[in-house]
């Protein structure tokens, strides 16, 4: 079976700067894959290329969801990429601050709903049923991530850790085949990180999806990912299982080495 996400020679240049340099990368169905690297290595740019925020300078982004043949998604707008089954979270939380927690998740259901202007104004039976269902579905997702007690709270009033979880819930609401998490544990304390760890595993196991995460927290990366890619200065410098990565001298030099120096 084709990998759910594959990039071939993916390159992104900003003026003279090559932020992503010829990266070949893949995520197979059901895997939890981590993308690590020092700050400024090009991880988020890679994410943005895959999810359509940027159009890559060259190379291919290929996806294959539901066992279908691979299709190239370079240059598709982010909303189209989401429709194809990729959902993401953001490094700097980007919730809809002045909407309630439930509404945030309901927005995630957008592509799964149909009702338009006519439905909104005239409330035919189909729209009412759809609304009722989306409210219930969204609530269920909140239960899954343990945010149901905040259901009618404005997103901006949530504690930090809960905001991070809400971002994941919102992305989950799009029913993705691949969930892309951009530093989900950033700013969390060890206890919260551990809870997040469990939550990510649970999401993968119950929903049968693949997860790609960018993360700095090594304990999280090492404990949950099955495959790790390491980038530095836009280039892929290593890939392998957590154990292989831990002992890879290149990686230690480029990334972990920095830590021991400091």
């Amino acid at each position: 079976m084709a990998p759910i996400l594959e990039t071939k020679n993916l390159t992104m240049q900003f003026g003279g700067l090559t932020a992503v340099d010829n990266i070949n990368f893949n995520v197979n169905s059901g895997e939890i894959v981590a993308l690590i690297g020092p700050n400024g290595a090009g991880k988020t740019t890679f994410f943005n290329c895959v999810t359509g925020v940027y159009t890559p300078s060259s190379g291919d982004v290929l996806i294959s969801t539901d066992g279908k043949a691979q299709q190239r998604i370079n240059g598709l707008k982010p909303n189209k990429v989401t429709e194809k089954g990729l959902a993401r979270t953001f490094q700097n939380i980007r919730l809809f601050q002045n909407m309630t927690v439930l509404e945030n998740v309901m927005i995630g259901r957008h592509t799964k709903l149909k009702s338009g202007l006519f439905g909104a104004i005239f409330h035919p039976k189909s729209t009412l049923e759809e609304e009722e269902k989306v409210i219930q579905d969204s609530y269920d997702i909140l239960v899954e991530v343990g945010l149901e007690k905040f259901v009618n709270e404005l997103a901006k009033n949530l504690p930090y850790g809960a905001q991070r979880r809400l971002e994941i819930a919102r992305a989950m609401a799009t029913e993705p085949a691949l969930l892309l998490l951009d530093e989900p544990a950033a700013g969390m304390n060890p206890h919260e990180t551990k809870e997040l760890d469990e939550m990510i595993l649970k999401i993968r196991n119950t929903n049968d999806i693949s997860i790609l995460l960018i993360e700095h927290d090594m304990s999280l990366v090492m404990s949950i990912s099955e495959k790790i890619f390491v980038v530095d200065y836009g280039k892929l410098i290593a890939k392998g299982t957590p154990d292989e990565i831990k002992n890879n001298p290149e990686v230690i030099k480029a990334y972990l080495g920095d830590v021991s120096d400091a």
Binding site: T51, G52, V53, K77, P78, N79, T82, E83, A87, R88, F90, R94, L95, F96, Q97, N98, M99, I107, G108, H110, T111, R170, A171, A173, T174
Partner: peptide, 12 residues
């Protein structure tokens, strides 16, 4: 609230 996040949620 956030154009980029909306697009990422599939909104045109």
């Amino acid at each position: 609230e956030d154009e980029i996040a909306s697009e990422s949620m599939g909104i045109d």
